[in-house]
Amino acid sequence: MNRLTKVASASGIVLGLVLGTGITAANADEEPASAEALFSDFVDALNVSDAADAALDQTFDQLPAAEQERVADAIEEDPLSLMQFSSGAPTLTSGSATVALPAPARTSAGSITTASQHSVPDSKRATARNAASAPHIQTAASNPRYTATYPVNASLFGVTTGTFTMRYVFEATSTNVTRNLECTGWFTGAAGVWNISTSQSNYVSGGSGACTVRYNMALAFKGSLFSANKQQQLIYKGTRLTSATLKNV
């Protein structure tokens, strides 16, 4: 039942009361708030900035009355259906990295043999023992490190209310991804009634590396809970982007 039908039903209830048809007065409370009031409540619940709040109100006020009613119906039925998601182009930055490698294994017999073959003053021998017992770390240059960033804006009437961002860090040659280092995603912006959880997965196969982030979104409004799930994914073959997707899941 859309809002116009609800208004008509409410009018019928009032008429029934006048004619004495026995419809209770409690049912008359079903008459919905105005489209403008409902939209204002929704924007307040999103907890956007003052500038975004003003921009959204101005845009709504400029809509034809029929479109305002359509928006109000959507808010009551599924507010998330009004949100638009637009992704920017992924960016890739590079930087070198080093990794720590464990020291080669040593045997006690080898150490003893070496010590017995050389005449070393006590002070120097002690220094040598201390150096041998200290942690020994070797560093080796890895393949270059690359960081891919993939933002997706959530907006209402073209006004950005928040941004989903995923970050994929990996090591690669020009033709092959060799190791994944990080795959994360997060939401920034208006919190309000949003409840967002994320899960991530990644893999390297055949020289291609992939990072996938899933967002489970829930929105509570006027006693109802609405949900939607989005998935971002980046796939690189070496330093070449082969896929950047955003889809419903």
Rank of each mutant, 00 (worst) to 15 (best):
Ser227Thr: 15
Ala109Ser: 11
Met83Ile: 10
Ala141Gln: 08
Leu181His: 08
Ile112Trp: 01
Leu156Val: 12
Leu63Phe: 11
Ser119Gln: 05
Arg145Phe: 00
Cys183Ser: 12
Glu69Arg: 13
Leu19Tyr: 04
Thr175Gln: 05
Phe164Cys: 07
Lys222Ile: 07
His118Met: 05
Val14Arg: 14
Arg106Asn: 10
Pro104Gln: 11
Leu82Tyr: 02
Ser86Lys: 02
Asn153Val: 10
Lys230Ala: 10
Leu219Gly: 09
Ala148Tyr: 05
Arg3Gly: 13
Asp61Glu: 14
Ala97Trp: 00
Lys237Leu: 06
Thr59Asn: 07
Gln117Asn: 10
Thr184Ile: 13
Gly192Cys: 03
Ala128Asn: 08
Gln58Met: 13
Ala8Tyr: 09
Pro135Tyr: 03
Ala191Thr: 10
Thr212Ile: 12
Ala190Asp: 01
Gly95Val: 05
Met217Thr: 14
Gly207Ile: 03
Leu225His: 02
Asn180Gly: 12
Asn2Val: 07
Ala191Asp: 04
Val213Ile: 15
Asn195His: 04
Val204Ala: 05
Ala37Glu: 11
Tyr150His: 14
Val18Ser: 09
Arg125Gln: 10
Ala55Asn: 03
Gln232Leu: 14
Asp41Pro: 03
Ala154Tyr: 00
Ala220Arg: 08
Phe42Ile: 08
Asn47Thr: 09
Leu4Arg: 13
Lys6Phe: 10
Asn47Asp: 12
Leu15Ala: 15
Lys6Ser: 15
Asn229Gly: 09
Arg125Ile: 05
Ala132Asn: 09
Gly22Trp: 02
Val99Gly: 04
Ala45Arg: 09
Glu69Ser: 14
Arg70Ala: 14
Arg240Val: 13
Asp53Thr: 08
Glu36Ile: 12
Asp41Gln: 12
Pro144Trp: 02
Asn27Arg: 13
Ile196Ser: 00
Ala26Gln: 13
Ala51Glu: 11
Pro32Glu: 06
Pro135Gln: 06
Gln68Arg: 15
Ser86Pro: 00
Thr98Gln: 05
Ala220His: 01
Thr139His: 04
Glu67Ile: 15
Asn27Glu: 12
His136Glu: 11
Thr127Trp: 02
Arg106Ile: 15
Ala154Phe: 01
Asn195Glu: 06
Arg214Trp: 02
Ala228Phe: 03
Ala55Cys: 00
Val99Glu: 10
His118Lys: 08
Asp73Lys: 08
Ala128Cys: 00
Thr5Ile: 15
Pro90Phe: 06
Val152Phe: 04
Leu19Thr: 13
Thr245Tyr: 06
Gln117Thr: 12
Tyr168Met: 09
Thr242Ile: 15
Gly162His: 00
Val43Glu: 09
Phe60Trp: 03
Leu241Arg: 04
Pro144Arg: 00
Ala131Gly: 07
Tyr215Asn: 12
Ser224Pro: 00
Ser86Phe: 01
Thr149Arg: 11
Arg167Ala: 09
Ser11Glu: 15
Asn195Gln: 08
Asn47Phe: 00
Ala134Thr: 14
Ala210Lys: 09
Asn143Gly: 06
Asn202Met: 10
Asn2His: 08
Arg240Ile: 11
Val152Pro: 07
Leu225Asn: 11
Val71Asn: 01
Thr59Met: 06
Gln84Asn: 08
Ala54Trp: 01
Thr239Glu: 03
Ala33Arg: 10
Asp50Ile: 06
Gly88Ala: 13
Met166Val: 09
Phe39Trp: 03
Gly22Phe: 06
Tyr146Ala: 03
Phe164Ala: 13
